[in-house]
Each structure stands twice: as structure tokens, then as C-alpha cells.
């Protein structure tokens, strides 16, 4: 009797371990849904132009700190907008990183959308302008269910990449 109880106890333990290691199933994304991921870092333009120092100003500086130009470190925030047709999927102004606001602004956003065709537009302003985008791209893409479409910004070509 004791042995049967022991076997039952260990079997129950193994069953709990086996069951909870795979069940209940977790639905991460609906059957007819897809993802658009906006993932990149980009540094905005500097807020001010570099200014050449006069000889008088240079003389006042210690010899090892005499640089010909004084460039402000602060950068503009980066404004990003992602649209599907007329619907805004993402619209945000991102502050530059760093305590002097001189680093890159980063975006990491995974946006769930219905599967199917989408007229996508992505735009970015990095020079503090009010309306227009400094960089943009439009494309019509058919997203199959479960697709993860990634939008990035290539710093070398200064273009949006859609993968």
C-alpha cells in the first residue's frame, strides 16, 4: 500500500513537471496578425553651427586646449512617424541620449498590425524642422500572418531599409 502511494506521489510530481513545462500554450500573436518593427538609433543634427574662435579667444585658453572651432555638443531630438495608409502606427519625438543630450536617439517598437497589404510610409526629422521630414520612404507591402517586417535606418547610405 505504501509503495503504491509512493509511486502515485512521484508520478503526480512528474506529471506536474511535464505538464507545466509546455502547457497552457501561449498565444503571442493572433492568427491573422503581423508585426512591423521599427528598430534603429540615429543621432540628430547639432543644435548650433561650429564657430571659429578669434585669435584673442584662443590666446586666453591654455595651450593644450586651443581648438580652432567651438562646436556645441547638443543635438536635436529625432521625430519619427510611421503610417499605414492614413493611420499613424507610430509618431514620437525622441530625445537624444546622454547627460549633454549629445548622443543617439533610439527607437525600438514592435507594432502589431493586421496581416495583408499595407501602404507604409516612414519619415524622420533630425534637424529640428517643424513639418517636413529629412528622410522618408514609402512602400506597399503584403504582410503574411506572423511576418515580422523590420524598418531600420542605414547610417552609411542615409536611407530607410525595409526588410
Amino acid at each position: 500500500m505504501k509503495l503504491a502511494g509512493e509511486i502515485a506521489a512521484y508520478a503526480a510530481f512528474a506529471a506536474v513537471v511535464g505538464l507545466l513545462s509546455v502547457w497552457p500554450r501561449y498565444e503571442l500573436l493572433g492568427e491573422d496578425r503581423a508585426l512591423v518593427s521599427l528598430v534603429f538609433s540615429h543621432a540628430g543634427e547639432r543644435v548650433g553651427e561650429c564657430r571659429r574662435l578669434s585669435q584673442e579667444e584662443l590666446n586666453k585658453l591654455p595651450p593644450n586646449m586651443r581648438k580652432p572651432a567651438d562646436c556645441p555638443r547638443e543635438r536635436y531630438p529625432v521625430r519619427i512617424e510611421l503610417r499605414s495608409g492614413s493611420e499613424a502606427l507610430y509618431r514620437k519625438t525622441l530625445a537624444p541620449s546622454g547627460i549633454w543630450a549629445d548622443g543617439k536617439a533610439s527607437v525600438y517598437e514592435r507594432i502589431e498590425v493586421p496581416a495583408g497589404a499595407h501602404d507604409l510610409f516612414v519619415g524622420m526629422n533630425d534637424s529640428g524642422g517643424a513639418e517636413e521630414f529629412d528622410f522618408s520612404r514609402s512602400e506597399t507591402i503584403d504582410l503574411f500572418p506572423g511576418r515580422n517586417l523590420v524598418i531600420q535606418f542605414d547610417e552609411q547610405t542615409q536611407q530607410f531599409l525595409i526588410r
Partner: peptide, 23 residues
């Protein structure tokens, strides 16, 4: 009840239903 893998990872897609190890 041997432990099995899901499908091979594919970063161009997102898994929709997962057998999560809840532990």
C-alpha cells in the same frame, strides 16, 4: 514525453503560438 524543439528560429517571422515552459 520527450522534450522537443519548436520550429527553427526565423527572425523574419514571429512565432504565433508557443509551448512556454511556465516554470
Amino acid at each position: 514525453y520527450p522534450a522537443l524543439s519548436h520550429e527553427r528560429a526565423d527572425l523574419a517571422a514571429t512565432p504565433q503560438v508557443l509551448r512556454l515552459d511556465w516554470f
